[in-house]
């Protein structure tokens, strides 16, 4: 993996790297946040594997639950789909929020975070930017779930407007929720322990909620 670049720098060229221009003005909070959001998107571009959780998982869950339990729980798979899909949508996105915390936890370990923290910028921009990048991931996941649902026969009661506003609500909810994992991401020692903790909280909560089964049937 250690291929040297052909052109080695010599002293003359190295000296030319030192800028003698005046320092540009400090970027605004918005601009800094958007730049960090751009960084998050670049990371998706370079490590597309990290999109697995937003593509494969929802598809798997939707298919599994609809066809395995649909008949038993709601009488027919198509009836269950009507109930399940919005729940799966929420669950998928909520689970993705964990990755926000994990990404930040990685950053802190890598030393690149130290550099960001020594920059004269609006400091929360690092986090806001990461969350903005994640909002894109939430959108991708939502689109996939809804598209698959429509193919399988899901017919939303609220129509297109209803679906869009549901997704918008979900995005706001996830954006808020991811702050919790972000906070944990700074406290926890390793990404693994963060993952375990978040799962411990989210897993029971999702199953007890009305995503899979009507709470009325619970004891």
């Amino acid at each position: 993996m250690t291929t040297e670049s052909g052109a080695e720098p010599d002293a003359e060229r190295l000296r030319s790297a030192v800028s003698d221009q005046p320092r540009p003005p400090r970027p605004s909070a918005l601009s800094a946040s958007l730049t960090f959001g751009w960084r998050a998107l670049l990371k998706i571009k370079h490590v597309p594997e990290q999109l697995f959780d937003v593509t494969v998982f929802p598809v798997m869950f939707l298919l599994l639950f609809t066809y395995l339990f649909g008949g038993a729980l709601a009488g027919s798979t198509s009836a269950y789909l009507q109930e399940l899909l919005p729940g799966i949508l929420a669950m998928t996105v909520v689970f993705i929020t964990i990755y926000t915390g994990i990404t930040l936890n990685d950053d802190v370990d890598e030393g690149v975070f130290d550099r960001f923290r020594t920059l004269p910028i609006w400091q929360p921009a690092v986090i806001v930017g990461a969350l903005l990048g994640d909002a894109v991931r939430y959108t991708i996941a939502s689109t996939i779930v809804i598209a698959l649902g429509l193919i399988l026969g899901f017919r939303p009661d609220g129509g297109a407007v209803g679906v869009l506003s549901a997704v918008a609500l979900l995005l706001v909810f996830s954006f808020s929720l991811s702050w919790i994992w972000t906070a944990l991401g700074f406290v926890m020692r390793s990404p693994e322990s963060l993952m375990a903790t978040s799962m411990l909280v989210l897993f029971p909560l999702t199953f007890v909620s009305n995503v899979f089964v009507d709470p009325a049937t619970m004891p």
Partner: peptide, 30 residues
């Protein structure tokens, strides 16, 4: 606004390219 730091570990983003790393910092610096 006056200092800059190079740590013991390369403080650049390993997932990004060299070009992207430098553009990112240049943008953050204004």
């Amino acid at each position: 606004g006056r200092v800059s730091m190079t740590g013991q570990f390369a403080s650049v983003d390993e997932d990004l390219t060299g070009h992207e790393n430098l553009v990112l910092l240049a943008r953050l610096l204004g």
